[in-house]
């Protein structure tokens, strides 16, 4: 992990409220692994104080034919002041980037679970898609069969789906307003799939709103499949010191609070305590 001031290479709007930010950060890009995240601080404005946690969507080599990854790409949705400032970034603007952070899709026995599964199912809600692309690529390179269930409020919320195409056998899209794919929540077609193949063994990877993750965890439990969730929470530091991002995870005794930034963001869903009263408001 490094804390560096890096330059914006490109900031591409995707529809009205999403964008893809490319940062010139070779060292951090080379170190990034699937499911990790970055803490981003927009410099030169008095707008916000704290860094913002963002999934590392992808790493890309630059145009030159030489080397490994050089760009870190962050897929973002404009939801508040921090992401609004992010949307205003222009090529050349400096950004303080603390990355890569967290325990991504490389928790213990994760690949073992994938190997035992007939298929890996990705479940994404809206901007939660950003946590899954690198995992999908890595699993595809290892030869795993994969499918993506992708839900959003509306057609415009289904950004990034096209990037998954090379790695998956199918993408099932769902929108709450029915403007794209079938109407409803992403857990609908997911449950259909689980019910249709009761003899198959799946490994699920999910990222999205708390309620979607909770519903997915319930389905995975009911159908007896393992599920890894990439959790989201407000973060003060990303370094494990502010303890602002803790969620309740089964542990010693009656349970313990673990840091999304350090022990997570990826957890086995059956270890997360899905208490309604403790919803992170994000």
């Amino acid at each position: 992990m490094d804390d560096q001031v890096v330059a914006v290479i490109e900031n591409k709007p995707l529809g009205s409220s999403y964008g893809l930010l490319s940062l010139d950060a070779a060292r951090q890009a080379q170190a990034a692994r699937p499911g990790q995240f970055a803490m981003v601080r927009i410099l030169g404005t008095g707008g916000v104080l704290l860094r913002r946690p963002m999934s590392i969507y992808d790493v890309k080599p630059d145009a030159a034919p030489h080397s490994g990854p050089r760009l870190i790409q962050l897929l973002y949705k404009v939801v508040g002041r921090g992401t609004r400032l992010m949307a205003g970034l222009k090529p050349g603007d400096p950004v303080a980037l603390l990355a890569p952070l967290g325990h991504g899709f490389f928790v213990e026995d994760y690949l073992e679970q994938a190997e035992q599964a007939d298929e890996v199912l990705h479940v994404a809600g809206g901007i939660g898609i950003a946590a899954l692309l690198m995992a999908a690529r890595e699993l595809a390179e290892k030869g795993f069969k994969q499918r993506l269930f992708f839900g959003g409020r509306s057609r415009g919320d289904l950004v990034g789906a096209v990037d998954f195409r090379p790695y998956l056998r199918q993408i099932v899209v769902v929108t709450e307003d029915g403007s794209c794919g079938c109407r409803g929540y992403v857990t609908g077609p997911l449950e259909d799939h689980l019910a249709r193949y009761p003899d198959r063994r799946f490994l699920l990877l999910a990222c999205g709103p708390w309620a979607m993750l909770q519903a997915t965890a319930e389905l995975a439990g009911r159908y007896g499949h393992r599920l890894l969730v990439s959790m989201e929470n407000r973060m003060g530091c990303g370094l494990g010191v502010c303890l602002g991002c803790c969620i309740r995870v089964e542990g010693e005794g009656h349970g313990a609070y673990q840091r999304v930034c350090t022990e997570g963001p990826v957890f086995w869903a059956d270890k997360v305590v899905w208490e309604r009263g403790t919803l992170p408001i994000t």
């Binding site: 916000v48 104080l49 704290l50 929470n233 407000r234 973060m235 003060g236 502010c242 303890l243 602002g244 991002c245 803790c246 969620i247 309740r248 349970g255 313990a256 609070y257 208490e275 009263g277 403790t278 992170p280 408001i281």
Partner: peptide, 14 residues
């Protein structure tokens, strides 16, 4: 153990 989440929130300059 600490308090349940959410535990932090950013405000103007604080």
């Amino acid at each position: 153990p600490g308090n349940p989440p959410p535990r932090i929130y950013e405000t103007d300059s604080g």
